[in-house]
Design a protein around this nucleic acid. Structure first.
Length: 265
DNA sequence: CGGCTTTGACCTGCGC
DNA sequence: GCGCAGGTCAAAGCCG
């Protein structure tokens, strides 16, 4: 999508409409004042659209960067356990396999932040997968217990999840995912829709940018890159803007300005 | 009755 | 070697 996105995607409005009014139906001074006001309004709207596009571009750049950056969640995976797994690998495949598996383990770890009701004691993060809780522990430095989950959708699925309420923000659940699912996601479309919507509409649940390292988000990101997403985004912007009475008035003003400009002097 | 959650016990690595 | 902390196990209980 280029810098002329706004122009390319803007809904086309034929401004040469309606019977032309005689310019001397109102006093010249009043018309000039109206014209100035409308022009000012028009300029502000142009700036608003430009700002929106700038912010949108910046956010997209950041999203792309986070998706492509080496995903290494420092310290989130248990180094102790990783070493145990590493030793097992070393016994079978040698030292290289150990090194590789450690890197893989780090690469497949991601963190997701989900905002929930602080009064809700459950450590449930709705991510579309089926999890089985196998342990809970109170950890050091956080009064809230940490829950341990295993993916129960497929018996052989190696993915684990740790969920703990943030010590700083009680309304924030921190879910740490380890590994990659070796099966398809159940009810994928439903979850995918919610996640994609969260990129457009900042309503809860809020998901940390780190979530972009997950395969499902990669898919979502791919969707963002598509022209289809652009269309959807433009439609969303148009819908939002047309709900704004100021915008409607400004458009009407712009139309009348255009009519006046096109009319013979 | 099967699957899930709860929870205390146990295992393992690390620092002193 | 001991204590601590994180992670896992497994028996017991709950629920549909």
């Amino acid at each position: 999508m280029g810098s002329d996105w706004v122009h390319q995607s803007s809904p086309r409005i034929d401004l040469r409409v309606g019977p032309r009014r005689s310019p001397d139906q109102a006093p010249v001074g009043v018309l000039e004042a109206m014209l100035n006001q409308i022009s000012e309004e028009n300029r502000r709207l142009t700036e608003m659209v430009r700002d929106m596009y700038t912010n949108y571009s910046a956010l997209r750049r950041r999203l792309s960067y986070l998706a492509s950056v080496a995903p290494c969640e420092k310290g989130s995976a248990s180094p102790k356990r990783k070493r145990v797994d590493c030793d097992k690998h070393a016994a079978s495949d040698g030292e290289h396999a150990c090194k590789r598996s450690r890197e893989d383990a780090m690469a497949k770890t991601s963190k997701v932040y989900v905002r929930t009701d602080p009064s809700d004691p459950s450590l449930v993060v709705m991510d579309g997968y089926q999890w089985r809780k196998y342990g809970q522990k109170v950890t050091r430095g956080n009064p809230f217990p940490r829950a341990y989950f295993r993916c129960s959708f497929a018996p052989s699925c190696p993915v684990k999840k740790k969920v703990q309420r943030s010590a700083e923000d009680k309304s924030l659940l921190v879910a740490t995912y380890e590994g990659v699912h070796n099966h398809k996601r159940p009810s994928l479309d439903e979850v995918y829709t919610v996640m994609c919507a969260s990129h457009i509409n900042s309503s809860a649940p809020s998901i940390d940018p780190d979530v972009t390292r997950r395969p499902d988000v990669d898919r979502c990101l791919g969707e963002i890159e598509s022209p289809k997403f652009d269309t959807a985004l433009v439609e969303q912007m148009v819908a939002t803007l047309t709900k704004d009475p100021n915008f409607t008035a400004a458009v009407a003003a712009a139309i009348s300005e255009r009519i006046l400009r096109d009319s013979p002097a």
